[in-house]
């Protein structure tokens, strides 16, 4: 099926002995294109790294608008609430855990701010309680973050969790973020967490 003619670089339709003017032009342009591509690739190679940039939220810019829960291409979102325990006051009345003016300081669903019950409240010692985030349940709605930041120590904050994030070339939450809190960070320092102990 494949005879030699098919694979000749250029069709010798012109019938002449040497390459036609058109072929010569094509060859020269091809050479130039190769050189240009090589040059561009070489120039860019000096600006490459093994890993590139990934998306992260600057918790100090975040205004807890709630768009992280709704605008991520993933459902549930790759943005989760993380807890800087060293900053936490371990309050009995946690404004991140309880609805404003709760019926009682217990784990009743009607008292909880979190729509998915992702925060686990456990007694540590009088009068302190620990609050842990169950990431599988967290949808990144930032209701707890808002409560904690407005009335508490601000130990709860949102972060893009990279085990879930698809690292889209254009993060669709970043496009929607009203505060410009989303940044591209180097992949080897992927988190912008609050608290000193969170420094890698």
């Amino acid at each position: 099926m494949a005879d030699a003619h098919q694979h000749a670089p250029e069709s010798p339709a012109s019938g002449g002995a040497g390459p036609s003017r058109r072929d010569f032009l094509r060859q020269s342009l091809r050479g130039a294109a190769f050189l240009a591509l090589g040059g561009a690739a070489g120039f860019l190679a000096s600006r490459t790294a093994r890993a590139g940039n990934i998306w992260q939220i600057d918790p100090y810019l975040c205004v807890q608008c709630g768009k992280c829960a709704t605008h991520c291409v993933l459902n549930p979102s790759a943005v989760k609430c993380v807890h800087a325990y060293e900053m936490c006051g371990y309050c009995e009345l946690c404004t991140a855990f309880f609805e404003p003016d709760p019926n009682g300081l217990n784990t009743g669903a009607e008292n909880q701010l979190c729509p998915t019950g992702a925060i686990v409240r456990t007694f540590v010692e009088d009068p302190y309680f620990e609050y842990r985030i169950t990431e599988d349940l967290c949808i990144g709605c930032a209701k707890c973050v808002k409560g904690c930041t407005a009335f508490g120590n601000g130990s709860m904050h949102l972060q893009v969790r990279h085990d879930r994030c698809l690292n889209c070339n254009e993060c669709s939450i970043a496009v929607a973020c009203p505060a410009g809190a989303f940044k591209r960070v180097p992949a080897n320092r992927p988190y912008l967490m609050k608290g000193k102990r969170s420094e890698p």
Binding site: Y90, E125, F151, M193
Partner: peptide, 29 residues
């Protein structure tokens, strides 16, 4: 005040409570 230290983080005396360390999962790639 912006967040921090409205309620000073407690010193745990009665229990041997250790502060949980935050996790930082690696990228999927």
């Amino acid at each position: 005040a912006f967040g921090e230290e409205r309620f000073p983080p407690p010193e745990f005396t009665a229990t041997q409570y250790a502060l949980p360390a935050p996790t930082r999962p690696e990228a999927r790639d």
